[in-house]
Amino acid sequence: MSFTRFLLRRAFQGIFVVWAVVTIMFGLRALSPGDPVNLIAGQVPDQSTRDQIRQDLGLDQPMYVQYVEYLGELLQGSLGYSYNQQRSVNDIVAQHFAATVELAVAATIVAIVIAIPLGVVSATRRNQPADYGATLGSLVGISTPNFWLGLMLILLLAEAAGLFPTSGRGVALHDGVLTLITTGHAGELLTWFSHIILPAITLGTYFTALITRLTRSGMIDELGKPYVTVTEAKGLPSVLIRYKHVLRNTLIPIVTVLGLQLGTLLGGAVITEEVFNWPGLGRMFIESLRNGDWPVVQGIVLFIAIAFIVINILVDALYARLDPRVIDK
C-alpha cells in the first residue's frame, strides 16, 4: 500500500469517526430533557409564541429532518447557533480555544521542565534517596485529584499568601504580546503570566508524574545498552553521556506521549478551567451543559473530536514515514 493510500484510508476512517460523534451527540441531545424554547423565551410567554418559536427554529420537524438539516449545516462549516448566547457556535469555539491552548501548552511546559530532570536524576541514582523521593513524588502527583490541588493552591498561594490571583486569565496572551510589541510595556504579559501559573501547575502535575516515570524507565533501559558502556570507556563525562546521548534516545517515546497528551489536554482541562475560572473550552462546555445550550455542547465535543482525529492522523503519518512497515500492517 502506498503512503498516499494509507493516508486516504486514515482520512476516511477519520470522517467515519466524526460522523459517529455527530450522530451520537445528536442522539443524546434528542434523548436529553430540556426544551430549547424555554432557553430562548424564558418560561412565561403564551403557548402561541412558544409554538411560533418552535416552528421558526424547525424544532417542530421530525427528528430525522432536524438531523439531516444539522448535517447539512456542518458540511457548510457551521457548528450551529447558540440559543442562549445568540451567536454562532463557531464564534464561541474560536473565542475560547486560544485560552485552552495557552493552558495546555503551559501545563506541558511545566511537566517537561520538572519531569525530565527529575526522571534523569531518579534513573541515575537508582535506589538512592533521590530516586525514592522522585518515585514517591510521582505517585503523589498521579494520585492527587486536580480539583483538590487547584483549590489548595488557591487557598494557600493566592488567598493566604497573596502571591497569585485566585482565578481568571487577566488578559489574553496575544493581547499581552501585542502590547509588549507596540508599546514596550510588559505589564499585561506579566498579568497573564501571574494568572496562568497556578492552573498550569494544577493541570501539569499529573503529567509531570507520568513523564517522570516514563523518563526514569526509559533512561534505565538506555543506560544498560552497550553504547553507554562504550562512551563511558571512551572517558566521556557522565553528565554528557546522560543528557546528550542517553536522554536524547529516551526522548522519542516521551515526545510521542507528550504530543498525544497535548490532545488530551485540549479537551480534558474541564476541571482545572472550572476551578480557576479559566475562560477556555472546558469551562464553556460546563456552562453550556448547565444551561442546556446543546448546540454549544455539540459544537465543542465535535471540535475536540476533530482535533483528536487530526492529531492521530498526523501521528500515524509520522510513524508511517519513520517506519514504512506500519503501512503494510
Binding site: 483549590l151 493566592a158 488567598e159 482565578s167 481568571g168 476551578v275 456552562e287
Partner: peptide, 15 residues
C-alpha cells in the same frame, strides 16, 4: 465567576 468558592476566594484575596 461561576464557582461559589471562587467568588469567596476573590473577595478574601481583595480582588
Amino acid at each position: 465567576e461561576t464557582s461559589d468558592s471562587g467568588r469567596v476566594s476573590s473577595l478574601l484575596a481583595d480582588e
